[in-house]
Design a protein around this nucleic acid. Structure first.
Lengths: 321, 321
DNA sequence: TTGTAGGCGTTATCAG
DNA sequence: CTGATAACGCCTACAA
């Protein structure tokens, strides 16, 4: 492989000059520049990017941590991140953790090793204090409410959104509402749980743990929700479903099992995925791609101060409430 | 940041010795080793991985090219790749191309620059000859039938699978069958088209271009398929649907529009995604995660010869035929 | 078992 | 405008 030194020799100039034309720096005469360019052409030269990385201390690589990628929420987030990264000539290193702490640590380590310039953590399992230890090594951006902490983030105020959706259902006459969620731990889930409990307390409604459905991630998870509801003597009359996919699964399954929607069961999905539109599902729109974009920008703008961006959501009224 | 030289000074040894303990090489006395370890502990030392890369010429990074990640087919493929990469201590660089040739070239370029050790192209837009030019720079693995070419791949014989599925439908009494596909170009699609035409010719059935539905990628795309079919004077009686997601969308929409499945319209999906099981959709199972695993291994086993692995598929009979 | 010295390919500083 | 030369941080013959 020919290197910068070879080029210098071929063009009859110094490596410095070669480096200059390579990086489009000024102060190089037209003739020398073209000599170098010619040498590059002839030799089919290719920069060794690792050497550049070592020398500059930058890699134009940003890490993205997600528990799994085969989920519309994360897929859309990554899509937004990827599109923005493309604009800024960055590439993405993907860390699929399956919520394995060791895997999350790997990602953090990678930051410390300077293999990536920044790390975006879309969802985490590891504790706050372990993540904190890596702050000195580069920007770490989170996708959860970090207000009050010294970390940047773009996030949805899930407490507020849940309260809003619950209120909406209440106005529509519902008293027995529950919700479906992916996992119960995690900041976002905790905030929703808090909202749920506060809401119940506020309206003096009873708390029924059976109204909370865990492990609802995909379309097919809607099935068990409907089955469980059918067996309840006092089923909920409305459900907040934290992913439109799952809501769609519930709608489909409900149809087959004779549960009328919205009459027997009202539904509010989240994200406003295309599937929600097609199936006419009332939903809370979360601009995930937009959020991905923001996350990325926070990662690479080092001159920027620590900032927490709240991403606004909007209710899309359709026919499941 | 403390480096290997500092460590050497602290531990009172040479950089070589430090390097040895860092890489678990033999021939270093117990006491020197512990001295180095102690220095590492005290200094909170962290290797600069870029320097390692430059020196060794390897990055433990594998590139993955996909058109978009928010699609179950690619998501599952990536999932398989990611899981295997994890086992071998590799990380993944994700290239989302949106089928932009320039973006694919970026990925290829990255290989040439030695930023990644191998490149897995799950689906491509660029021509065969341009890809060929990058063979000298590292392993390039494809996800399409490359038999007869000098490239490694793991692939499904879509010609064979399509023929098989078509035959199955024919045995069940169908004569007017069509198919839904993501895009018409692409090797895999071409092979399916070929199978389709050969099949028709073989049974002396007429070719009707209206029976081929393009741009069918997601659940919601099922809607337009059903709508189009409803308007046809002579609609197909059976459809091969190259993604279970889309098949599920068709089932759902058909229900709403009064198209009976399988009586008015029989369906065979592809992939055997969980959604197919839940919705009782007959499908051709493609072990995508397994395929991802294979692809990855082909990427990193440089001693291995060029090889093309055909991934077997199986028909899962359910209730849409 | 240990250490010296050279190399990996670039960029950056600084003196012309 | 141009070019030595010193980083960048690590690995690895080769010599001892």
């Amino acid at each position: 492989m020919t290197n910068i030194k070879d080029l210098a020799k071929m063009a009859g100039v110094s490596v410095t000059t070669v480096s200059r034309v390579l990086n489009n720096h000024p102060y190089v005469s037209a003739e020398k520049r073209s000599a170098v360019l010619e040498a590059i052409r002839q030799s089919n030269y290719q920069q060794n990017i690792n050497a550049v990385h070592l020398s500059t201390g930058k890699t134009f690589l940003v890490g993205v941590v997600v528990p799994f990628i085969d989920h519309p929420y994360f897929a859309l987030l990554i899509k937004g991140i990827a599109n923005e990264a493309l604009k800024h000539n960055y590439n993405l290193v993907l860390f699929q953790t399956n919520y394995l702490e060791s895997r999350e640590l790997d990602a953090l380590q990678t930051l410390k090793q300077k293999q990536i310039d920044a790390l975006i953590i879309c969802s985490r399992i590891s504790s706050w204090s372990t993540i904190e230890q890596y702050f000195p090594f580069g920007p770490i951006i989170l996708c959860e409410d970090t207000r009050g902490k010294k970390v940047s983030s773009s996030f949805v105020d899930h407490y507020k959104s849940f309260l809003f959706a619950l209120d909406y259902l209440y106005q529509k006459g519902h008293q027995k509402m529950g919700y479906c969620i992916g996992r119960k731990s995690g900041t976002n889930s905790k905030n929703r749980e808090l909202a749920y409990k506060d809401f119940l307390k506020n309206y003096r409604l009873p708390y029924n743990p059976a109204y909370i459905f865990e492990d609802c991630l995909h379309f097919e998870d809607g099935e068990k929700v409907v089955e469980q509801i059918k067996q309840m003597p006092h089923p909920p009359t409305a459900l907040l479903v934290t992913s439109d996919d799952v809501a769609a699964g519930i709608v489909t399954c409900a149809q087959n099992l004779g549960v009328m929607i919205p009459d027997n069961l009202a539904l509010i999905g989240f994200n406003n995925q295309p599937i929600a539109k097609m199936m006419d599902i009332t939903t809370i729109e979360i601009p995930l791609e937009e959020m991905g974009r923001k996350l990325f920008l926070q990662g690479i703008n080092q001159n920027e101060e620590i900032a927490q961006y709240e991403i606004p959501v909007t209710l899309i009224e359709r026919n499941t409430v």
